[in-house]
Computed example of a mutant assay.
Amino acid sequence: MTYAEVNGINLYFEEIGEGSPLVLLHGGLGSGEMFGAILPALTARHRVILPDLQGHGRTADIDRPIDVRTMADDIAALIDHLGLDRPDVAGYSLGGGVALQLAIRHPGKVGRLVAASAGIRRDATDPEILAQQGQVTGAAVEFMKDTPMYELYQRVAPRPEDFPRLLDKIGESMAVDYDFTEEVRGLQVPTLIVAADADMCPVSHFAEVFALLDGGVRDGGWDGSGRPKGGHALAILPGLTHYNLVDSPLFAQVTLDFLTTP
Rank of each mutant, 00 (worst) to 15 (best):
S20P: 01
V176R: 15
G231F: 06
Q188Y: 01
I79V: 14
W222A: 10
R112E: 10
P190F: 13
G220K: 04
I66M: 09
P164S: 15
E18D: 12
P158M: 15
G111P: 05
L213E: 04
I38K: 07
L50W: 05
A72C: 13
G231K: 01
M71W: 03
H56Q: 09
D223H: 04
Y178R: 10
L240I: 07
R58D: 08
P127L: 08
G8S: 13
I75K: 11
E182F: 00
T2W: 07
D63P: 08
G216Y: 00
D177N: 10
P65G: 08
S31Y: 05
S173Y: 07
M149A: 15
L212H: 12
I193R: 10
P87A: 13
G134I: 03
H56K: 05
L82T: 05
G19S: 11
L187F: 02
D88H: 15
E172N: 12
V209T: 15
A77G: 04
Y243L: 14
H242R: 06
D223G: 05
D219T: 10
N244Y: 00
M1P: 14
V194M: 04
M71T: 04
V156Y: 07
V156F: 03
Q132V: 02
G83W: 04
V48Y: 12
G231Q: 09
A124K: 06
E5F: 02
E15F: 00
I104A: 12
D74M: 13
R64Y: 05
R64G: 07
F251S: 02
G32W: 00
K229Y: 02
R86K: 09
Q253K: 14
S225N: 11
K229S: 14
F13Y: 15
P164W: 14
R121Y: 06
P87N: 07
F180K: 10
L245I: 14
I170A: 09
P262N: 11
A90M: 15
P158Q: 12
F180C: 07
H26W: 01
Y153L: 02
R45P: 00
D61A: 15
A175M: 11
E172I: 01
G111I: 02
I120L: 14
F180P: 03
G32M: 01
L237S: 02
T255W: 02
D179T: 14
E172D: 09
E14C: 10
P40G: 10
K145M: 14
L84T: 04
